[in-house]
């Protein structure tokens, strides 16, 4: 989620601090030329889950991962695993023909 409010160059509020970053908000940020935002995770346990929300993730990967992790994502450790998987799969996405998974 956002650690600080995001505003455009005209000082218009785009997203309040504390709000979840979604694919839509990322598109809005990009459209205003905003490249970086300050993020924070849900309260972490023993340092778990303190990774930033992966950005630029293809929707297919995003949805597939969410579906797989739906029952456990409230656990900060599992959320950290999901985020790491999202980053690694997204990093390889352009090279692969298929979307989510490697059946």
């Amino acid at each position: 989620m956002l650690a600080e409010a995001v505003r455009n160059h005209q000082d218009q509020l785009l997203l309040e601090a504390g709000r979840q970053i979604t694919a839509k908000s990322i598109r809005v940020f990009k459209s205003w030329g905003i490249r970086r935002v300050a993020v924070r995770s849900e309260p972490a346990v023993d340092g778990w889950g303190d990774d930033p929300v992966p950005t630029g993730m293809p929707p297919a990967v995003d949805e597939g991962l969410k579906e797989r992790f739906a029952d456990v994502v409230a656990d900060p450790l599992m959320a950290a695993i999901m985020q790491a998987a999202a980053r690694q799969l997204a990093a390889r996405q352009p090279k692969k023909k298929s979307g989510y998974g490697r059946r």
Binding site: E67, R68, D71, D75, A85, L89
Partner: peptide
């Protein structure tokens, strides 16, 4: 768990269990 997270093959179910 990590294999399930990455979607490498399938263990026969589609959910990732808690570690």
């Amino acid at each position: 768990i990590l294999t399930r997270a990455l979607g490498l093959g399938s263990g026969g179910d589609e959910t990732v269990p808690s570690l």
